[in-house]
């Protein structure tokens, strides 16, 4: 079930069933509001879940992984840090830090958020802002308040995915009711975040436009980078099933294609496999993986009309000479 969204009436029954509250309910769905009649059961409209991934499911560059572990020490050794070593006297507010995971799409930020929750033994409440935002004035703030209340009760870690829009700067020169509403929402969010005495995770692609007030609330900004060759090798290896019949040369793929994310690699494996099946081949040919990843790279937005550099690689001198009729270019 998607997380952090309002449940449809038909989904409420499954929530109740999961919670062993199998009483008849009569739900009316009226735009954004769900009312439960003839029952005193309170149904939460947000849903925390057990983490779906651990750190064994994500391949991160060492620097990123170490930075995450440094911050998690704060939570894993709270007793030592704040009570035995006295940080509660001098750094009381640091107990409720936020972690901002930022970097290009497909670099494992969302999976890492789950892995963090798993390491801390906590449930995770993923918040998709588009599900909280309402066209009605004041309703978005109300939804945010409900969501934080739910997180407190369920003791879940809040994870704001795609947090760019939510945390961007408040508007200084308000020229419309929309601007007023946006500022109101962000002010409410800031208050809620400041009052929330627990870990909050954020994931974003851009970091430049954050409101300074939010920035102060965040203890660590952890950069996610596209994988290097070693990690690309691990990712290809991870995403190609062990039982798949294939003549793929993972080392060659890892060296040849730079600037790709784990998500790109996952998609390439999927499409290469589909092609082999479509052509009734017994094995997934190496060339299918190359075609798939080149197609993914080529499909990216080409703002400058240059096309996409599909690969950058080191080549030997003889290869270069061959390209230029036996001489080196000069």
């Amino acid at each position: 079930m998607p997380l952090g969204r309002r449940l449809k009436p038909v989904e409420i029954e499954s929530v109740l069933a999961r919670e062993n509250k199998s009483v008849p309910i009569y739900a009316q769905h009226n735009s954004d509001e769900i009312k439960i009649n003839d029952t005193n059961i309170s149904v939460n409209l947000f849903h925390a879940e057990k983490p779906q991934y651990s750190f064994s499911d994500v391949i991160l560059n060492d620097r990123t992984y170490e930075a995450i572990q440094d911050v998690l020490t704060l939570y894993e050794k709270q007793e030592l840090l704040f009570n035995k070593w006295g940080l509660s006297e001098t750094h009381k507010k640091q107990k409720r830090a936020g972690i901002n995971l930022y970097g290009p799409s497909g670099t494992g930020k969302s999976v890492t958020a789950h892995a963090i929750a798993a390491q801390l033994g906590r449930d995770i409440l993923t918040v998709d802002y588009s599900q909280i935002e309402s066209k009605y004035v004041g309703e978005t703030s109300k939804n945010l308040t409900e969501m934080f209340d739910y997180a407190k009760k369920s003791e879940a870690i809040i994870f704001f995915d795609e947090a760019d829009a939510l945390l961007s700067k408040r508007v200084n020169n308000m020229s419309s009711s929309t601007d007023v509403s946006v500022n109101q929402t962000r002010s409410v969010l800031l208050i809620l975040i400041n009052e929330f005495d627990d870990l909050i995770l954020f994931a974003s692609n851009f970091i430049a436009n954050y409101d300074p007030a939010f920035m102060r609330r965040i203890l660590a900004h952890i950069k996610f980078e596209l994988p290097n060759e070693v990690n690309r090798f691990k990712l290809w290896h991870m995403y190609i099933p062990k039982i798949m019949p294939t003549n793929v040369n993972i080392k060659k793929l890892s060296a040849k294609y730079e600037g790709i994310s784990g998500s790109d690699i996952s998609n390439a494996v999927f499409h290469a496999t589909l092609k082999a099946a479509r052509l009734n081949r017994d094995v997934v040919e190496h060339v299918y993986f190359e075609e798939a990843i080149e197609k993914i790279i080529s499909s990216r937005v080409d703002n400058e009309g240059i096309g996409n550099p599909i690969l950058k690689r080191t080549v030997d001198e003889e290869y270069v000479k061959k390209q230029f009729g036996g001489e080196l270019p000069r």
């Binding site: 075609e291 080149e294 197609k295 080529s298 080409d302 240059i306 096309g307 996409n308 550099p309 599909i310 690969l311 950058k312 690689r313 080191t314 080549v315 030997d316 001198e317 290869y319 270069v320 390209q323 230029f324 270019p329």
Partner: peptide
């Protein structure tokens, strides 16, 4: 399979590693 593609390949010698490198653009 997706149509015609122009490719342009660029070659330069990396001054740090002294190795030749190739960049390929497609369009």
């Amino acid at each position: 399979i997706d149509g015609f593609k122009n490719k342009s390949k660029y070659y330069y010698k990396n001054k740090v590693t002294s190795e030749w490198e190739e960049i390929v653009y497609t369009k």
